[in-house]
Amino acid sequence: MQQSLPVPVEAGGQGVLKFARANAPIVPPGSVTGRSLTFVIAIMAFLASLTAGAVYVTFNAANAWTNNISSEITVQVQQRGGDVGDEKIAEIKKFLLDQNGIRRVNPFSREQSLKLVEPWIGKSDILKSFAIPRLITVEIDRENPPEIQTLKKVLEAKFPGTLLDDHGHWRGEIRRLTRFMELAGIGMLLLMAAATAAVIVAAATSALASNREIVAVLNFVGAEEQFIARQFESHFLKVGVMAGIAGSGMAAVVFLVLPYVTEGMHSSATSEAEIRRLVGAGSLDFWGYIVLAIVVVAVAMICKMTSRYGVRRILNQQNA
């Protein structure tokens, strides 16, 4: 460690030499801010930030998924002895738009409906001969939703061959899935937080142990526990903040470039869109970055608390 030599200077004009640095650190910074400690904490901050960010992205995607699916219902119009004419579709659209709580009605053209089955059957002219039902997607006003069961009864009675699907089955399934994802995410986050805390505590405790002699001397010259703890806390807090910013900063960079990486990884535009719909693009919004900032604060606090309790433990061993 580089130590600054005190420079003798005349003090108070009385010919007394000053041989002390004004702010000579009682705890040498290098003994705490060693590269290995900073490196270990930065890695743990990086992993914790990645986990927290990933859980945040998953939560958001799951919420968006549930919201989208519950704000939409679908009307199927079966073909009965011939193609469903556009007039009938227009009639149903008008009927739906006249109901309360309906925001938008979007009938699929025959071509669009055929495209939906392409992934299973393939692109073939033979599809055109199939009696594929026409679909109408209906966006409902979530603030003021219609009475779905009544609408279903009236619609199916007024237009025979129509089926109204409120996606209830899917909603249930998706709720179960998102709840599972949320629980798994929280579990993962807790495990990661515990691992991060354990590694930081172990690393900081060993850094503190190497300063046991300083704690002992301060203790024996009559320094109070708070005074001794303060000497170490400021160093450990600094290490925690620096390493936390480095680790979480790296994670933020990962979340910034992730959408471009995922875009480059998928050759098919469809699969990329599907992945985005399922788990989001992998990028964070403002609150996502706040989550990363919270990780920095948590890491710094763990360092500070470890230092405080570490000093107390050493003092307990040294005192009667």
């Binding site: 041989f19 040498p28 300083i214 001397v217």
Partner: peptide, 20 residues
């Protein structure tokens, strides 16, 4: 002795006064 290696002789001797 238990002197702190990173402090000068003067700073070591002044330590009991500094900590109060």
């Amino acid at each position: 002795f238990r002197l702190l290696d990173h402090l000068t002789t003067w700073e070591n001797v002044a330590l009991p006064l500094r900590v109060v």
